[in-house]
Design a protein around this nucleic acid. Structure first.
Ligand SMILES: [Zn+2]
Ligand SMILES: [Zn+2]
Ligand SMILES: [Zn+2]
Length: 378
DNA sequence: CTGGGGAAGGGGCCC
DNA sequence: TGGGCCCCTTCCCCA
């Protein structure tokens, strides 16, 4: 794609192998009930050869051993991100005997990311185009979490390392850090509550349905579903809601506020989830778009920006487009390699210049399920 | 199928 | 410290 702009890797596959870099398979998260902040990272490393993983400190000193069957231990490895190039790389995965080891190429300061550079060739060999594309970008990949080296310790006793920086206290206020996910909190009690997301502890149980909650406030809110109580009333339409958040969302209907704007078209939405779904349509459209076509499908634009009025039969502005599209759909249906995505006739590709229908790009007729990760639009 | 509205759960901040 | 509150998210349903 734009490999020309990428930093020229000095290590090729052969180099990686020569240096014993072991490529671990990137798998979807094994536990769907992970906290979202973690699950969204979508990185779980599998260790096919061994049940232990040794972590080495700089100087090749064995730091500690992880049992990779233990998900709590394995999870931290998801924080290892692909480095944009060898310059940023500070971590190397290697195979030692039958164990997977990581060692630091450079000092890893608190707050630094763990960046491993698998190499573009490796990414391609793993058939991971997203990673390959990431590696092809000049800027560093955006990582949502910077892993503190201390977080690696997990349940290990904290032995102060010589040369280790003092515990987090930037900006005078002491910070309490979760040593599992490195999130920091201003108050210890907040950290304690937070730790329940890792431990799974749910101390508060509903006496009626036995459902358990991590926080008392959640249980109290939950009680309303049994009592049917809706304490929050919309003063405009007098509809009642069980929570302030839901009321607030509802109030946008009256105020007309639509905070979530599509960056690709003038469409706006009251709820983020609606924007997300809408953007997925753009994404699908983009994948099926012929490079010659105008970037915005008029059909999609029309739907988002000029929503149908209830009772109205159709939007006139779109009618001509629709005619084109349905014509094209009929044409395309007789052509090979269509049919998987039939649900979007309005988006069917017409080359405006030639007036002819365009075939989808080769092999773009993948199952729609594959669409699941449109790169999480900030 | 898309857009839109609501119910409910969950995480974190603040007093 | 922890309860209250806010925000965000997911899921579901309906037009
Ligand atoms: Zn944590
Ligand atoms: Zn209950
Ligand atoms: Zn109202």
């Amino acid at each position: 794609m734009r490999g020309e702009t990428s930093p020229v890797p000095r290590w090729r596959d052969a180099d990686l192998e020569a240096r014993c870099t072991y490529v671990v398979k990137d798998q979807p998260p094994a536990r769907p009930h992970l906290p979202r902040t973690q699950a969204s990272l979508g990185r779980t490393l599998a260790f096919p050869r061994s049940h232990t993983s040794e972590v080495y400190a700089p100087g090749a000193q064995l730091h500690h051993v992880l049992d990779t069957r233990d998900l709590r231990c394995r999870d931290w490895m998801r924080y290892i991100n692909p480095a944009p190039g060898t310059a940023a790389q500070n971590l190397v995965a290697c195979q030692h005997d039958r164990n997977i080891c990581f060692y630091a190429l450079a000092p890893i300061l608190p707050g630094a990311e763990l960046l491993m550079w698998p190499g573009r060739e490796v990414a391609q060999r793993l058939q991971c185009p997203a990673l390959a594309a990431k590696l092809a970008q000049p800027q560093r990949p955006t990582s949502r979490l910077a892993l503190q080296l201390d977080a690696v310790n997990l349940s290990m006793p904290k032995t102060p390392r010589p040369g280790a920086l003092p515990p987090k206290k930037q900006s005078s206020r002491p910070k309490y850090e979760c040593n599992i996910c490195a999130k920091t909190f201003g108050q210890l009690s907040n950290l304690k509550v937070h730790l329940r997301v890792h431990s799974g502890e749910r101390p508060f149980q509903c006496p009626i349905c036995k459902k358990r909650f991590t926080q008392l406030a959640h249980l109290q809110k939950h009680r309303l579903v049994h009592t049917g109580e809706k304490p929050h009333e919309c003063l405009v339409c007098h509809k009642r809601f069980s929570s302030t958040s839901n009321l607030k969302t509802h109030l946008r209907l009256h105020s007309g506020e639509k905070p979530y704007q599509c960056p690709l078209c003038p469409g706006r939405f009251t709820q983020q989830v609606h924007l997300r779904l809408h953007r997925r349509l753009h994404e699908l459209e983009r994948r099926h778009r012929c490079p010659h076509l105008h970037p915005l499908s008029l059909a999609l634009h029309q739907r988002a920006c000029h929503p149908r009025v209830p009772g109205a039969t159709h939007d006139f502005g779109l009618e001509g487009e629709r005619a084109d599209a349905s014509q094209a759909a009929g044409l395309a249906d007789s052509l090979p390699q269509r049919g998987a995505e039939r649900g979007t006739p309005g988006l069917l590709l017409m080359d405006k210049a030639s007036g002819s229908a365009l075939l989808p790009l080769p092999r773009y007729g993948l199952p729609v399920k594959q669409e699941a990760s449109p790169m999480q639009p900030a």
